[in-house]
Amino acid sequence: MSVEAGTDPLNPIDNETPWVARQIAEYVATDGEKPTFRGGAPLLLLTTKGRKSGVWRRTCLIYAEDAGRVLLVASLGGAPKHPVWYLNLQANPEVYLQVGARRFRAIARTATADEKPPLWDRVVGVYSDYADYQLKTDRQIPVVILDPVDD
Rank of each mutant, 00 (worst) to 15 (best):
K116M: 02
R69T: 08
H82M: 13
A74F: 07
H82D: 15
N92Q: 12
R139S: 10
L135V: 15
Y127Q: 12
T137C: 06
V126G: 03
R103P: 03
D147Y: 00
Y133N: 07
A79M: 12
W120P: 03
A79E: 14
P148W: 04
Q140C: 05
N88R: 04
L89H: 01
A111S: 09
D147S: 03
H82A: 15
S128C: 09
K136S: 03
V143R: 02
A111L: 08
R109E: 00
L135R: 15
I145F: 09
R103D: 09
V123T: 12
D121R: 12
A113V: 04
I141Y: 00
L135F: 07
A79G: 14
L119A: 14
V124E: 05
G125T: 10
V95W: 01
R103A: 11
I141P: 05
T112L: 10
D129V: 14
P117M: 07
K116T: 02
R122H: 02
R103N: 12
V73H: 11
P80A: 14
Y130H: 06
K136A: 10
D114E: 15
L97I: 11
E115K: 07
Q90R: 15
Y86M: 02
A101Y: 07
V143S: 04
A108Q: 02
V73E: 01
A111E: 04
Y127A: 14
Y96G: 05
D132H: 06
D132V: 13
G77D: 04
L89N: 00
E94S: 12
T110A: 09
D132G: 09
T110R: 01
P93S: 06
P148R: 00
E94L: 15
Q98R: 13
P148A: 08
V126Y: 00
R139P: 04
K81S: 14
V95K: 04
P148Q: 03
L87V: 13
P142A: 11
D114N: 09
V73Y: 01
I141V: 08
D121H: 12
E94H: 12
I145V: 10
T110D: 04
V73R: 01
V73D: 03
N92F: 08
R102F: 04
N88Q: 07
V84W: 07
T112E: 12
N92W: 02
A106V: 00
T112H: 03
D129Q: 14
V70H: 01
L146D: 05
L135N: 11
A113Y: 10
A106T: 10
V144I: 15
A74P: 10
P142Y: 05
S75T: 07
I107K: 08
E115M: 10
